[in-house]
Computed example of a mutant assay.
Amino acid sequence: MRARMVSMDKVAIVVVTYRRQELLATLFKSILNLTKAPWRVVIVDNEHSDTTRQMVEEFESAVTGQWGKTIPDSSGEDSRVVYAPQSDNLGGAGGFSAGVKRAYELGAQWFWVMDDDVAVEPEGLDKLAKWSDKHEVIQGSRLDYDGGPFYWQYHFIVSLGIPDPIAPAAFGLAGYRVMNTMCFEGGCFSRRVVERIGFPDPRFFIYWDDTLYGYLASKVTTPIVVPDVVMRRTREIGNWDIAGVRQLNSTSDMNRYHIMRNRGYMARYFMQYGDYRPVLFALGTAATFTKELIRLVAVDRSSFGSGVKKLVTGWWDSRKLLHDPEWKPMPPLK
């Protein structure tokens, strides 16, 4: 099967994986069903696993058999699949930073980023490509594990540093909604954006890294979220359904810590652009803490004691980051 041509050229799919080979296999299978061949597929392996390496080699063979080789990069490498094992677990933030950097160095013009617990829709790249002539950051829609629509909070209240909980779910007459955030579960952005805002910040480790990257992107272009479904989630997560549209998903104590700690990094970036409002941001931090307490009671009650401890520790560490004299933002590339 040969892919038909569309306007989005040299697309690199950047996948970050860690100890979820079964889910990764599902993603690989879905990529092979794409109606447009990706220019590269960069697999960032945070586990540096022999099993994952073997899976990637088999995937590379299948990709080559289906689409052939690709345009060679500066080193002469022409395989569509690039395996990028990491010596340490860099978390999602570090993995996406490493993956985007690798794809950028190879010469990618577009970056479609995702975790290993999704499957792409066959026409996913085609659906994104139709927006690429006028937009540089495109967030496609997703289906949840159960096949229903997945609502994502595309508007970020910068002064509070929190997602807008009442942003309308419907799309307007333009057929898309302007956003000032991003999600690395399917976010797609151009090389020009990377050049102007740099690579994703690996220091976040997990959580808020994609939100912040979308905020930075909104300073140089107009990101949009579109109704076209480009992928679906493949991992079932416990959640609390809110009014049939929004959900409060289960999370881990590690996430809880970084949800609070990384607000320190977020505030430092807001300071760079004159968007930091101390009183309002503190109010947003309190609201975030309260939301996580609700999550613990409604979804993760068995982890209540340890969860509260991680939230408090993360909040304390975020205050240290606010006053770190060594901190600097990720630099632009051009």
Rank of each mutant, 00 (worst) to 15 (best):
A108N: 06
G186T: 11
G161H: 08
G140S: 09
C188K: 14
L106Y: 07
R142A: 01
S141N: 13
K134S: 12
D116W: 07
H155W: 05
G107D: 08
M182F: 12
I166Y: 09
V118A: 12
E185S: 12
G175L: 07
H155M: 03
E136V: 01
W131P: 04
I162A: 07
Y154E: 04
I162E: 05
F171I: 05
G186Y: 13
D133V: 03
I162W: 03
G147I: 06
D126Y: 02
A174T: 04
A169K: 15
D133R: 15
A119M: 13
G172D: 15
K130Y: 04
R177Y: 00
D117T: 12
E123M: 02
D126Q: 11
F150Y: 09
K130I: 08
P122L: 07
G124D: 02
Q109L: 15
H135A: 07
P149E: 09
R142Y: 00
P165E: 14
F111A: 05
G140Q: 12
H135V: 00
F156P: 00
D115S: 14
A169I: 08
D115W: 10
A119K: 15
V113Q: 02
A119Q: 14
H135M: 04
L143K: 14
L106S: 05
R142Q: 03
G147R: 05
F150S: 11
A119T: 15
M179S: 04
P149I: 06
D146V: 05
Y176C: 08
G124N: 05
Y176E: 14
V158A: 10
G107N: 10
F184T: 10
V118C: 12
E185Q: 14
E121W: 01
E185W: 13
L125N: 08
N180H: 03
S132I: 00
L125Y: 06
P149Y: 05
V118W: 09
D117P: 07
A167C: 14
L128K: 11
F189M: 04
V120P: 02
G124P: 00
K130G: 03
F150A: 11
A167P: 01
P168Q: 10
D133H: 14
P163K: 06
C183D: 02
V137M: 08
L128D: 11
W112M: 12
H135Y: 13
A170G: 10
K134E: 10
G172F: 06
G147C: 06
L143F: 08
S159Y: 01
F156G: 01
S132P: 02
C183M: 04
E121D: 03
